[in-house]
Write a protein that binds this DNA or RNA. Structure first.
Lengths: 162, 162
DNA sequence: CGCTCAGATACGAACACCTCGCATCTGCGA
DNA sequence: TCGCAGATGCGAGGTGTTCGTATCTGAGCG
């Protein structure tokens, strides 16, 4: 089991919360992958091992773990949000291929500080993904590199948008 | 009718598209307000004047106008996206009060340029709203100012989130 | 002004993604 | 091992949106 998963489970125990099969399995799953999984993906994977775990339990468990700071969710523009073990950092999602790129929080520090000063608003850059395009998919960046839309990479359900 | 609305309608005409009641009404509505309206809000408002205009027509019309570059949609984290006449700029949405703050694109230019260079990714900062909190609602920024959650300001349906 | 028809619309069913209520079950402290 | 608060299974319900299809209409043409 990954270190972060172990930490998450210990955190549950430390706060006196129950270590249930659903919680343990979801945490292990999230700890074992670098993918950005939607609740439905998680439910499917969890049910592969424990078919009796209901999708609504997965939603509720994710919500609880999120609330307790052990996992985080990120909203893509369309389609489902995706989840990962807590490690606040922004994500960029390519509208053409669906790929998710992790970005260090530091890249946004200057912007966040300025917006806080000027607009009196504290941005949580990790909560919504930043949409855009990998340069290979950007029609403005030299069509040479641009493959047709058919060459989707990691596009799960919900990579379409305008 | 607002200047931007007139321009949008002329753009429709110039491209040989039909000026229908639904299109004209939606464009006038968006041109007449600075609010950030969801498709459902728009449908309700439009139906106030023309009850026969169906909500699915509103969705399709908005989709078309968006595709033609005359309106834009912005995704909030939860709940419905909101629409406005084309004027690409980022938005920040307070998770506590639902308020939407418009930000000039220029604030993001440096970040966008750096991300393009370093990560090979072209961010469209206007597509997803940036979530966060007005400083008055930020528990970390001196609880003195923080009103209870009940004091929602512009929170429409879907201002809740974790 | 009336004819024509591609394009637009009304309507309702269906869909994706969740959320909720409630009866049952279970982790864990006593 | 017992008791019960908290967690889960199950299915209905909700919200926001998309789609198929029959009908209608804007606008060019005569």
């Amino acid at each position: 089991m990954s270190i972060t998963a172990i930490r998450a489970i210990e955190a549950l125990r430390a706060e006196g919360r129950r270590i249930t099969t659903a919680r343990r399995t979801i945490i292990e799953l999230l700890g074992a992958t670098n993918d950005h999984l939607t609740a439905e993906h998680i439910a499917t994977a969890v049910q592969h091992a424990y078919p009796e775990i209901h999708v609504s339990t997965v939603y509720r468990t994710l919500e609880s773990l999120d609330e307790w700071g052990l996992v985080e969710h990120v909203h893509r523009g369309h389609g489902a949000a995706f989840f990962h073990l807590a490690a606040s950092h922004p994500h960029m999602v390519c509208e053409a291929c669906g790929r998710v790129i992790d970005v260090p929080q530091e890249e946004f520090d200057a912007l966040v500080a300025r917006v806080r000063d000027v607009y009196g608003f504290d941005i949580d850059v990790a909560h919504n993904a930043l949409m855009g395009r990998c340069l290979v998919h950007d029609p403005r960046a030299g069509g040479l590199l641009a493959p047709p839309v058919s060459s989707r990479e990691g596009a799960g359900p919900g990579a379409r948008d305008g």
